[in-house]
Design a protein around this nucleic acid. Structure first.
Length: 974
RNA sequence: GCCCAUGUGGCGGAAUUGGUAGACGCAGCAGACUCAAAAUCUGCCAUUCGCAAGGGUGUGAAGGUUCGAUUCCUUUCGUGGGCACCA
């Protein structure tokens, strides 16, 4: 009888389904354990081989915990709102709800094929109105709450209103500032709109103005992902910054608690570090500088007030409100020009490209209070409006970016750190003794920080201030496929829907294009958007992370129609015991879900404020991507830009030609090259373009193409033209042999990169058990690796070999009921120990190899005994459940192996009395000697020195020292 | 650029707290079985010098600490991920 994995896996999957073996109850005498995967976005490409890496790991762990006697919750669902479905809708006209439904069906069938132990009765989908009803409900809780700075927690906004009505909002000390403080009487005198505007500034979910990527040509706001090299990915249109009203979550209020919470969770240090860096807490001072000939003051934030005497210039963010006010007449034109340039730059480009130094002098000067020095005020793109005060004091001797800026614009540099500054590079030390620093002279910098802040406060020109790099989280998208906001606008006031009116369902649309003025598609649906009177619905939708910020709670009580999750259920399942997912979510999703959990905790809806007790990061299975290079039309073919645009013509070049360019980009003339190399091409498109047009590397934009259209590196040109409507008329400039070669690269596997691989093919060929074990065998779960199927045969051979311990092709059943020998038991118990340890620490690759070693050993001793094999099968259940169940039944067992009792390891069987010690001379192993484990140093030295090989190396000399580490090694130093 | 991770044979990778580098597997080579193939089994398999015995070198690179470093420290290079509207 041979190992027919297809039949076996089908048989048991059907049986398990029929018997509902994965059904999980909220009531059990067993201890609970909650194993959670980051749920997938159901992309149109289907599940790819990268997804199961984490899912297999969590499935193994869940099954292991179950065998160990836990009531295990291990659910799965779908993060089914998102941009890709909408983009697909734009391209094909299919409704996102339909494509999403279809994609989920594909995902589920793929997941089931691999044999995961999910309780599908608990499935959640973020795009299901029954689910997003509660996402909207939680949004309302956020909207109706504020962060109380005294209690450091969220409280219902009605309490704040009550406070305003009774006490107003007056400063604890000092004078009330008009516009900021008010009495109860004043509050009552405010109009409804005025009151609401004040409250909006405190709500946890609030509206404010923020910048978006605006693409005028497409009439829409673009995601960062849709902007490539400063132009839109679709069509290559220019993109610029534009201010729009947006929703935000006040995550900054929780910055400290998010930091403190990290102490209580088991995340890897690097993960915690990433979150800490994202939050970016810094201590420093905020101070005001007078501006020469102006009543305005420039407020800067600095973490290094000790360097105040080294300030040689100020840099203000180009968006800073002061820029208009202080720019002098003769600098106006230049500043305007610079502002135009900055508008086209993404934030990333602005901070990343340090080699390219840009800036512009405003003509204004700030006055350094401490020495009266006049400090030129510049604007520069490396200063961002969103961080600190949007203005910095630049100390070129101490900060590299300031230094580069000063050098570039020939601003004289003041040295305040003596010979710590070499004139060639800035030195950010805190250990230098200050010079040229007035009252700070002679102080060590790190001590001077405090002295400087005290002085600043004493003079009343500034305050000690803690700052966070983190900004409030943008929470609205000008898109269709997301949760609608349960908000109606009337007279400029946001009115929340009543909870009873939820879910506010997404209306059906026929067109997915943007609404007027960059609003989302919902703005196009008059009857939905415009309500009686002046009332108008919010037309933005929530971002992708809304639904994923609380889904782990819904799994606990997925069908509840009266609340998002019954308190009894959330108390029972409590925190997620182990959460498995990729590091790419290190800051986004993980911070947001931690925030939501804290808020729900503050408001008393759940009993814990950290959602995930322990986090395991799975690595990424990388894909092998293919690119084509598009020539940037707008620049290269200026004269004929309109023609190309109207006719929807894009030009792509084969990678070989591109490489030719790169060899000599200066002298390479594009058109002459083409005409000599490809005399037969139709050049009518290029008529009128001067031959001298040059192409530089940055005029060639890489574009992912579907790896399925590429054979090795050669593009299927017809398939490419049919791939997207906009490529229908594309000109493909091929190599001389007519082949179009793509560039290859290894990167994240994702639909948007068109480099996904489907696990189904492998499951069909080798079976789910082989696939599961192979993915684990690839390497440590937390490590990233490019996808490769090279080693899968080995894992498959292992399972077949296991099978042959039970069955012989000719003889049939060969297992016996004989009593196991000590040697056989030793193999089993060594394996139990190893598998248990490895499973506990998520070292699944070494566990798989331990299984292999075990089976090889059992083969060597020709062991076919039920007593031995049975234990191995139970160990194997988490890894290869189908074959384990099948063989379990072949051994004559009745019940399912899924609920067997995990074998216990007996240490007595593994005790050794001696060990083969490596004996080194000066750290190099020269001999091996078997020594009893209970020997002392003197006895070991004696034996070792008598050894022939050691004597040879000693050449008659006495050793300087002999190091003996029990159970490890012996080192003879000569 | 900044933050985080990572770098070991032809390949994936292994190596408690610093203690025999290369487990396990893939590929490759040689052989057995077979009319043949598949399957299976046996042996070899970092590199270099050597007939061999045995030696030298070797964990991205360069230094350092140590009796001993893949492991700890410093510097540096490459790669992957994230950088706020992809999920």
């Amino acid at each position: 009888m041979e190992y027919r994995f297809n039949e076996i896996e089908k048989k048991w999957q059907d049986q398990w389904k029929a018997n509902k073996v994965y059904k999980v109850s909220n009531e059990s005498a067993k201890p609970k354990y909650y194993v959670l995967d980051m749920f997938p976005y159901p992309s149109g490409a289907g599940l790819h081989v990268g997804h199961p890496l984490g899912y297999i790991a969590s499935d193994i762990y869940s099954r292991y915990k179950r065998l160990k006697g836990f009531n295990v919750l291990h659910p799965m669902g779908f993060d089914s709102f998102g941009l890709p479905a909408e983009q697909y809708a734009l391209e094909t006209g299919q409704h996102p709800a339909d494509t999403t439904e279809k994609n989920i069906a594909t995902f589920k069938s793929q997941l089931n094929k691999i044999g995961f132990c999910y309780d599908w009765d608990r499935e959640v989908r973020t795009s299901d109105p029954q689910y997003y009803k509660w996402t909207q409900w939680i949004f309302l809780q956020l909207f109706n709450s504020y962060f109380c700075n005294t209690e450091k927690k969220a409280l219902p906004i009605v309490l704040l209103i009550k406070k305003y009505e009774t006490k107003g909002a007056m400063p604890k000390t000092g004078e009330a500032i008009p516009g900021k403080h008010f009495t109860a009487a004043e509050w009552k005198g405010y109009s409804k709109k005025q009151q609401e505007d004040i409250l909006m500034k405190r709500r946890l979910a609030f509206c404010a103005y923020g910048e978006v990527n605006w693409c005028a040509a497409l009439g829409t706001v673009l995601a960062n992902d849709e902007v490539v090299n400063g132009v839109s990915e679709r069509g290559g249109h220019p993109v610029e910054k534009r201010k729009m009203r947006q929703w935000y979550l006040r995550i900054t209020a929780y910055a400290d608690r998010l930091l403190e919470g990290l102490e209580k969770v088991e995340f890897s240090d690097s993960m915690k570090e990433m979150q800490r860096n994202w939050i970016g807490k810094s201590q420093g001072a905020e101070m005001d500088f007078a501006i020469k000939n102006s009543a305005e003051k420039l407020r800067v934030y600095t973490t290094r007030p000790d360097t105040i005497f080294g300030v040689d210039f100020m840099v203000v963010a180009p968006e800073h409100e002061l820029v208009n006010k202080i720019t002098t007449a003769d600098q106006k034109e230049e500043i305007e020009k610079y502002l135009g340039y900055v508008k086209s730059r993404s934030e990333r480009e602005r901070i990343a490209e340090v080699k390219q130094i840009t800036g512009c002098f405003t003509g204004a000067y700030a006055i350094n209070t401490f020495n009266g020095k006049e400090i030129p005020i510049w604007i520069g793109e490396y200063v961002l409006a969103g961080y600190g005060t949007g203005a910095i004091m630049a100390v070129p001797c101490g900060d590299q970016r300031d230094f580069a800026f000063a050098k570039h614009f020939n601003i004289p540099i003041t040295n305040i750190i003596g010979n710590h500054f070499n004139g060639a590079d800035a030195n950010a030390t805190k250990e230098a003794v200050l010079e040229n620093s007035g009252f700070l002279n002679g102080f060590l910098m790190k001590d001077a920080i405090n002295i400087a802040v005290n002085k600043i406060e004493e003079l009343g020109i500034g305050i000690r201030k803690i700052n966070y790099r983190m900004r409030d989280a943008g929470f609205s998208r000008q898109r269709y496929w997301g949760e609608p906001f349960p908000i109606i606008w009337s007279d400029g006031i946001a009115i929340p829907l009543d909870a009873a009116e939820l879910a506010l369902e997404l209306p059906h649309v026929d067109k997915y294009g943007p609404g007027p003025e960059g609003e989302g598609p919902l703005a196009n649906i008059d009857e939905w958007t415009n309500l009686p009177g002046d009332a108008r619905r919010e037309t933005s939708t929530m971002p992708g992370y809304a639904g994923s910020s609380w889904y782990f709670l819904r799994y606990m009580d997925p069908h509840n129609i009266t609340t998002f999750c019954d308190r009894k259920a959330s108390d029972y399942w409590n925190q997620v015991d182990i959460y498995i997912g990729g590091t790419e979510h290190a800051v986004g999703h993980l911070l947001y879900s931690r925030l939501w959990t804290k808020i729900l905790f503050d408001l008393g809806y759940i009993g814990y404020e950290e959602p995930f007790k322990k986090l395991v990061n799975q690595g990424m299975i990388q894909g092998s991507s293919r690119f084509v290079y598009r020539l940037k039309m707008s620049i290269l073919f200026r004269e004929d830009y309109d023609f190309f645009k109207e006719n929807n013509v894009d030009v792509f070049i084969s990678d070989n030609i591109r490489l030719n360019f790169l060899k000599d980009p200066v002298n390479f003339k594009f058109l002459p090259y083409l005409k000599t190399k490809f005399p037969d091409l139709d050049y009518s498109y290029f008529e009128g373009i001067p031959n001298s047009v040059e192409i530089s590397p940055d005029l060639m934009i890489p574009l992912h193409v579907d790896v399925k259209m590429v054979d090795g590196f050669e593009l299927d040109q017809d398939a490419f033209k049919k791939w997207r409507s906009e490529f229908e008329n594309a000109i493909l400039i091929t190599d001389v042999d007519g082949k179009f070669i793509c560039k290859g690269d290894v990167e994240k596997m994702s639909k948007s990169k068109f480099n996904t691989e489907n696990p189904n093919d492998l499951v069909d060929k080798y079976g789910a058990d082989t696939f599961r074990m192979y993915e684990m065998f690839l390497g440590p779960v937390e490590m990233s690796k490019p996808w490769d199927t090279k080693g899968i045969e080995g894992v498959h051979r292992f399972l077949r070999k296991l099978w042959r311990l039970f069955n012989d092709e000719l003889k049939g059943k060969i297992w016996t009921e004989d009593k196991a020998t000590d040697a056989e038991l030793k193999i089993v118990h060594r394996t139990i120990k190893k598998i248990e340890e490895d499973t506990e620490k998520f070292s699944f690759n070494t566990a798989v190899s331990a299984f292999m070693i075990c089976i090889n050993d059992l083969f060597d001793v020709k062991c076919h005994k039920k007593e031995v094999l049975e234990k191995i099968l139970i160990l194997l259940v988490p890894y290869a459940p189908h074959i384990a169940e099948e063989l379990w039944h072949q051994l004559g067992n009745d019940g399912s192996i899924l609920d067997a009792k995990y074998p216990e390891f007996n240490p007595a069987l593994l005790v050794e009395s001696s060990k083969e010690y490596p004996i080194s001379i000066n750290g190099k192993v020269r001999a091996n000697i078997k020594l009893a484990l209970d020997l002392d140093q003197a006895a070991v030295e004696q034996i070792v020195l008598q050894n022939e090989v050691i004597q040879k190396w000693l050449e008659g000399k006495a050793p300087k020292k002999i190091i003996y580490v029990k159970n490890k090694m012996v080192n003879v130093v000569i």
